[in-house]
């Protein structure tokens, strides 16, 4: 554990909590892509199956359980409890394509051709692109509530901080997992436009509206 990874994890945790608070307080999931949340739930489910086979630390286990539970809770809020507020007609990204491509890539490019390893690899590839339905939705509506943009900023920062963690681990521990590193770079890259808008608008107290 190093400082980049810890802050990255905290940022990830903060993102999930911000999202749950936003939905719970406003009794609404308006502006949130249910498809992105489904993809994140699939990511956690496939990746954290190793809860049963591989113990790393109390910290690791606790975080995994929290991420799994919170992602299922989010899905419940969006598709059941507050489903009347879900903007289905704006959440139109063809996310099936992301799943198909991630499955194919995981079968072709992995560290080891075993069930658990392919599921892990699939989760890494899928996570890299899971935010696309959400970003697409914002592009379509042209705006996002400020709390939604805080959520996205925290979520995007997490993988960016993990890149610093991977650089640190490469030099200090000789640890390199190039599947995670390359996917993490793609994942962080997808947020670049959003980061720019967040820093130039939201941080100055303006709303996140896209230039026409």
């Amino acid at each position: 554990m190093n400082v980049f990874r810890l802050i990255g994890d905290m940022s990830h945790l903060a993102a999930i909590i911000i999202l749950l608070i936003k939905i719970w307080r406003s009794r609404s999931c308006s502006g949130i892509s249910g498809k992105s949340q489904l993809l994140f739930t699939a990511v956690f489910t496939c990746r954290y199956l190793d809860l049963f086979t591989n113990f790393v630390s109390i910290y690791n286990t606790t975080m995994k359980i929290f991420f799994l539970a919170s992602s299922y809770a989010t899905i419940y809020l969006i598709f059941m409890k507050f489903k009347a507020t879900y903007n289905r007609n704006h959440d139109t990204f063809r996310f099936e394509l992301l799943i198909v491509v991630s499955v194919i890539l995981a079968l072709l490019i992995n560290h080891e051709f075993s069930a658990t390893e392919i599921l892990w690899t699939f989760s890494i590839y899928l996570e890299a692109v899971a935010i696309l339905p959400q970003l697409f939705m914002i592009t379509k509506t042209g705006e996002a509530e400020s709390i939604t943009s805080h959520y996205l900023f925290a979520l995007g920062s997490y993988r960016g901080l993990y890149i610093l963690n991977w650089i640190y681990r490469y030099y200090v521990e000789g640890h390199l997992d190039w599947i995670a590193v390359l996917s993490g770079i793609v994942q962080t890259g997808l947020y670049c436009d959003f980061f720019y808008l967040y820093i130039t608008r939201v941080m100055k107290g303006k709303n996140l509206t896209l230039p026409a």
């Binding site: 990874r5 994890d9 990830h12 990746r47 190793d50 591989n54 790393v56 690791n60 975080m63 995994k64 991420f67 560290h111 892990w120 993990y162 963690n165 521990e173 000789g174 640890h175 390199l176 997992d177 190039w178 995670a180």
Partner: peptide, 10 residues
């Protein structure tokens, strides 16, 4: 260069 032999990250 050591490739991760187990996944210890989240």
């Amino acid at each position: 260069i050591v490739v991760a032999d187990q996944h210890d990250e989240l």
